[in-house]
């Protein structure tokens, strides 16, 4: 389990992470969802020992995190937002280096390399150089590298950013497999769908704070079921209604071309994370 107590990280005067109290049970998948600059990356870097907190504590299974602790580092895996791969190594060599870094035995290393190359579906690429791999394959390689030493917790920072939809889904499948194998997963994303598909809990983050936290279903159940989108005067007004009839009545009373639809997680996201007032931000 990961627990943070009033976690704060400041850069100069700015609080990139501002008083985080996270609670992530073992074996669960948690998504930090938020706009750019919300502090998601900073949070993951704090949780993965890459960054020192300005204030506050992190506990993993009740044990206070010591950043230099090798035992702690062995329990964590990290996939960072940017590609961090040796460009002139092959995928097999990248994994081998990781095995060396984690002091894995020769036999374990070899078995894991075979298994993970297959797991990632990269048999055809295993002898190419990293610099020749596609973005999707680089990302997959980073994921299997991060789990090679069998960590308990895997952190992923925007694991599918910039990838096309079908590759994104194949990466989701990879992550689902890891999850069902019992790994705790903490990921950041600004794709709502990604959080919904992969995670059982979502923390919506804005300006360094968790502004709302719930299950995907929980977010949906507290949100009115219908939305009327009404575009006029060069902006869209969004109005929320508990049922279709009241939405229809509302439209009948308006003299415009409004449309009605089911609300979705994106509406919850906008309502919670939009700092400038949703109407402002939703201007067309």
């Amino acid at each position: 389990m990961i627990k943070t107590e009033n976690l704060i990280r400041q850069f100069g005067k700015q609080k990139a992470v501002d008083g985080l109290n996270l609670h992530i049970p073992p074996g669960s998948a948690y998504a930090l969802l938020g706009p750019n600059g919300a502090g998601k990356t900073t949070t993951l870097r704090l949780l993965s020992t890459l960054l020192a907190p300005t204030e506050g504590e992190i506990y993993v299974d009740g044990e206070k995190m010591q950043r230099a602790s090798k035992a702690m580092k062995s329990r964590l895996g990290m996939v960072s937002q940017h590609f961090s791969l040796q460009r002139d190594m092959t995928p097999r060599e990248v994994l081998k280096l990781h095995g060396y870094l984690h002091g894995m035995s020769r036999r374990d290393r070899k078995e894991q390399i075979e298994r993970l190359i297959r797991f990632a579906g990269m048999e055809a690429e295993q002898k190419k150089l990293v610099s020749e791999l596609s973005g999707g394959n680089k990302r997959k390689l980073m994921i299997v590298r991060a789990v090679m030493h069998r960590p308990d917790i895997l952190f992923l920072d925007e694991p599918t950013v910039g990838l096309d939809a079908s590759i994104r889904r194949s990466i989701w499948d990879l992550l689902k497999k890891l999850r069902y194998a019992g790994m705790t997963i903490v990921l950041t994303t600004h794709y709502i769908e990604e959080a919904r598909v992969l995670c059982d809990r979502i923390g919506m983050m804005s300006q360094g704070k968790i502004v709302a936290e719930d299950t995907p279903e929980g977010f949906m159940s507290t949100l009115p079921a219908y939305v009327v989108e009404d575009y006029r005067d060069e902006r869209t007004d969004y109005s929320y209604f508990p049922d279709r009839d009241s939405a229809a009545n509302y439209i009948a009373g308006q003299n415009t071309t409004a449309t009605v639809r089911r609300s979705n997680l994106e509406d919850a996201y906008i309502l919670h994370t939009d700092t400038k007032g949703s109407k402002e931000r939703l201007r067309a």
């Binding site: 993965s48 890459l50 230099a68 090798k70 580092k73 960072s80 870094l101």
Partner: peptide, 14 residues
Amino acid sequence: YNKTFEQFLIAPIS
């Protein structure tokens, strides 16, 4: 550029 230094930072080596 490659950000590979991070890999060593996060690894259990001093």
